[in-house]
Design a protein around this nucleic acid. Structure first.
Length: 596
RNA sequence: GUCCCGGUAGCUCAGAGGAUAGAGCAUCUGACUUCUAAUCAGAGGGUCACAGGUUCGAAUCCUGUCCGGGAUACCA
């Protein structure tokens, strides 16, 4: 926010008190009289006087300021309007400046390394991954938007028992088919074998339990290696680790299929990485660091020779970091890759976008790194996001309730297409498919970003797929409307131009002023979101702005305004709204169709 | 058992010391001869889980209770 009257007020108050004042007016509640509010309760701690006394000063000062109108005070709240010309001057007269403020005012520029997505290569991506991807790419984009440097990183889990399961099933049931020969997307193709493995495993388990009733109490997982197919998977894993040529070549082939599939899904969403790590390369990392930690005495050897990290002082349980046989556990390689990522990019902060069920794991990881003396260990951040449930409860792959990412894309695109066709009559646009894709992706990403990342969200397929109300298409629609006005204005010889003189005085209705006031909050909204690493504030903000525009659109004719001067002014206002909304959506990685 | 999240309108979610607690969906009423109705204007709908406490002021902070979810692996 950059209103002259507020800046002047801050200078005045600072002089009065001899203290640095931070003051950001709030939007006045609807039922109160005024556009903005200075809440003097918030200033009271700095001043150390009765908030109402401060409010009186503020009221006095603002009511004498040439830019303000209708200054009033209720207790410690000072409500006021800003005059139309000042509003315009301090917001839309220089929209470029308004949009560049967030970057310019970000005093703490840093380099962030953000790891997200991190898929397993045994089955296709589902809705949960989409939340991860959307949050990850949104965060990268947001941090970059406010001037930080970012490195987006993926860590693909391409090794382990899960992919071996798919490999075993493929050898048993695959008949040398390929994604090409079946016309299936690679990740779905491989995923089917993962499911087949599970089916066969279940069958063998029940046979095993039938013939050995004494095992019936045991969990299926415990009996994994007792089944022929489970044994095969174990053997495959061991062969893989010994670099067995045949196993490795099948592993390579199947992983390529999966990655081709993932990359297609990534492409549709617009997911991009600066660097992709594979766990097959990184899984051995960390051991040497553990051994060094042992030398330093930070880590301890247990009686059975396993290495543990004592973490009592962090109120965490002690953690095994090397098994008794000297092999790594999961956290060992996490320690290693964290350090590798640091060595590769030297970020100020490392961020992991990983589900909230791993909060404890990351606490442990951070504590161990700190103990090992990596003093950049205070700059780790686990962006823990909540799970996505269905109205019936959790998504369960066994019950087939998992919402598949590609299917969801297709369904939503189809719905967007249908909705577009309903509206366009006989003028079917050439780019309808592209348009539908943009609308569908916009709707989905918006839905996933509008909630605070940490909330567990309920995905109701019926409700979530709508394009009305607080949705991505609502915002896209505003831009499409504005595009349409600007285009039509052009045919009438009225153009938006950089340094056209606009008479801001004319933008004086409540609708126009409301838009300008909201616009003034945009830079702070971005900075605040970046600070909190949470895009949801931007989403809510854009909705508010778009609503204000839609009301204006209904109430204030642009091209049918009474005078040319007013047309020009309203056109400038509309153009500026489009700039902000498209900037905001771009920051959220949401595209906008030209028309809808 | 211990720890972490959460419980706000019928549903999905905002609000995280400040004014009379908000938005979307759903329900109901009204608005397309107009710059795109994927829109707008309006109505109804609340014991902010419960009980104490701190405060001039609590949905928000503290304590306890109840309910839901997650974690507490030499799984990833």
């Amino acid at each position: 926010m950059n209103f002259k009257c507020i800046n002047d007020l801050i200078v005045y108050l600072s002089k009065e008190t001899g203290k640095q004042i931070e003051l950001l007016p709030e939007l006045c509640p609807k039922n109160m009289d005024g556009q903005l509010t200075v809440n003097c309760f918030r200033l009271a701690p700095v001043f150390r006087v009765n908030p109402e006394l401060i409010a009186e000063k503020v009221e006095n000062y603002l009511s004498k300021h040439p830019d303000t109108e209708k200054v009033s005070r209720i207790k410690a709240f000072v409500n006021f309007d800003i005059s139309a010309s000042a509003l315009y001057k301090d917001t839309f007269s220089d929209i470029k400046k308004l949009l560049s403020d967030p970057e310019a005012n970000n005093s703490k520029k840093k380099k962030y390394l953000i790891e997200y997505s991190a898929p397993n290569t045994n089955k296709p991506l589902h809705l949960g991954h989409l939340r991860n991807n959307t949050l990850g790419m949104g965060l990268v984009s947001l941090l970059r938007r406010v001037g930080h440097e970012t490195v987006a990183v993926n860590l693909v889990n391409d090794r382990g028992i899960h992919i071996c399961k798919s490999m075993v099933a493929y050898k048993l049931f695959g008949n040398n088919q390929t994604p090409e020969s079946t016309g299936k997307k690679g990740d779905h193709f491989v995923g089917e074998f993962y499911v087949l493995f599970d089916k066969e495993f279940k069958k063998q388990i029940s046979e095993l339990k039938k013939s050995n009733p004494e095992l019936s109490d045991k969990a299926d997982e415990e009996l994994f290696s007792e089944t022929p197919i489970g044994k095969k998977a174990q053997d495959t894993l061991q062969k893989w680790e010994k670099n067995d040529t045949e196993v490795v070549s099948l592993w390579k082939k199947m992983n390529e299929w999966v990655m081709d599939g993932f990359n297609e899904t990534y492409r549709r969403m617009g997911v991009k990485f600066d660097k992709v790590y594979f766990e097959s390369d990184t899984y051995k990392l960390g051991k040497d660091i553990i051994l060094k930690g042992l030398e330093k005495g930070v880590l301890k050897k247990r009686d059975d020779n396993a290495v543990i990290a004592p973490l009592k002082k962090y109120k965490l349980n002690d953690k095994v970091v090397l098994r008794a046989d000297g092999t790594s556990v999961y956290i060992t390689q996490d320690i290693g890759t964290t350090i590798k990522k640091y060595d590769d990019f030297h970020p100020d902060t490392q961020v992991w976008v990983v589900g909230d069920e791993q909060i404890y794991h990351f606490k442990t990881l951070f504590a161990i790194l700190k103990e090992l003396g990596y003093d950049w260990g205070n700059s780790f951040f686990h962006l823990a996001y909540g799970m996505i449930n269905l109205p019936e409860g959790k998504m369960k792959s066994r019950e087939g309730t998992v919402v598949d990412a590609d299917n969801l894309f297709d369904e939503m695109t189809e719905l967007a297409k249908k909705a577009t066709l309903e509206r366009c009559g006989d003028n079917i646009p050439d780019d309808i498919d592209k348009r539908s894709e943009i609308i569908a992706q916009g709707a989905l990403k918006f839905m996933l970003l509008k909630f605070n990342p940490k909330t567990t969200i309920t995905f109701d397929p019926q409700a979530s797929i709508k394009f009305e109300g607080d949705t991505g298409p609502y915002l896209q629609y505003v831009c499409a409307r504005i595009n349409s006005i600007i285009k039509k204005a052009g045919t009438e010889g009225i153009y938006l131009s950089e340094n056209k003189s606009v008479n801001g005085n004319l933008l004086s209705t409540q609708w126009e002023k409301n838009i300008a006031v909201l616009a003034s909050f945009y830079p702070n909204t971005l900075l605040d979101a970046a600070e909190k690493m949470d895009c949801s504030g931007i989403v809510l903000y854009l909705i508010k702005l778009a609503k204000a525009f839609n009301s204006f659109y209904r109430e204030c004719p642009v091209l049918n305004a009474e005078t040319e001067e007013l047309k020009t002014a309203r056109l400038a206002l509309s153009g500026a709204v489009r700039e902000i909304i498209s900037d905001g959506l771009r920051t959220l990685t949401i595209d906008i169709p030209e028309a809808m």
